[in-house]
Simulated scan of single mutants.
Amino acid sequence: MNPVIRPAAPEDGAAVWAILEPVIRAGATYALDRDMPRDAALAYWLGQDRVSFVAEIARQVLGTYYLRANQAGGGAHVANCGYATHVEARGRGIARAMAEHSFEEARARGFRAMQYNFVLANNVVAVRLWHALGFNTIGRVPAAFDHPDAGMVDALILHRQL
């Protein structure tokens, strides 16, 4: 079943937090403070400098992503996104559906490319998905992230044209 992807609404805060909290607390994929409080996490994810979406199946929010400009000014034509899937819904194609939706949204908003600045090299599921969706690894930052289990991990910079 394909998810319905729609703009996030204020009443989605609890569902978005239910997705983000385990990701943030694990500290294994995003360079965010593992002790980040709920309000700060929601302000980050649903911030004024981005547009945020949720992915639902049977009216249950199972994924979320945000879309923003990667840089200001002369770099504002390149999009950037962050994605998260509910821990119990992983492996069901929700991340892929959100990614494909984000490409369409980005194009509709005038972006010409998309860049992910900090994809951990040991996040093989994500790296495989991004490569399958047309991203190229254009850079590698050695030992950029102190992973709670793997120690110092490289961060990849991924890019694709839209």
Rank of each mutant, 00 (worst) to 15 (best):
H77D: 00
W130F: 07
R109W: 13
F135H: 10
P7I: 11
M114K: 02
D35S: 07
D49M: 07
M98Y: 06
R109I: 12
L158E: 13
G63I: 07
V125W: 02
T85K: 01
H86R: 07
E11N: 15
W45L: 01
R96N: 05
G91S: 00
E88H: 07
Y65F: 05
V78W: 00
N2Y: 08
D49Q: 06
V119A: 04
V4W: 10
E56H: 05
Y116I: 02
L120D: 01
P22K: 10
G110S: 09
Y44H: 13
V124H: 13
N117T: 04
I94K: 11
E104Y: 02
H147A: 07
M152E: 13
F103P: 01
V78E: 01
G75M: 03
Y65V: 00
F118K: 05
G91Q: 04
I19M: 09
T29N: 06
A95K: 00
Y83P: 00
G74W: 04
V141I: 14
L158H: 06
A76K: 03
A113D: 04
A84T: 03
P148T: 15
Y83E: 07
Y44Q: 05
Q48S: 13
Q71C: 05
A106S: 10
Q71D: 07
N136S: 15
N117A: 05
G27P: 14
L120V: 00
A126L: 04
N123V: 00
L158Q: 13
A41N: 06
A9S: 15
R160S: 03
R160Y: 05
R50A: 12
D39T: 13
N122M: 00
T29A: 07
V23I: 14
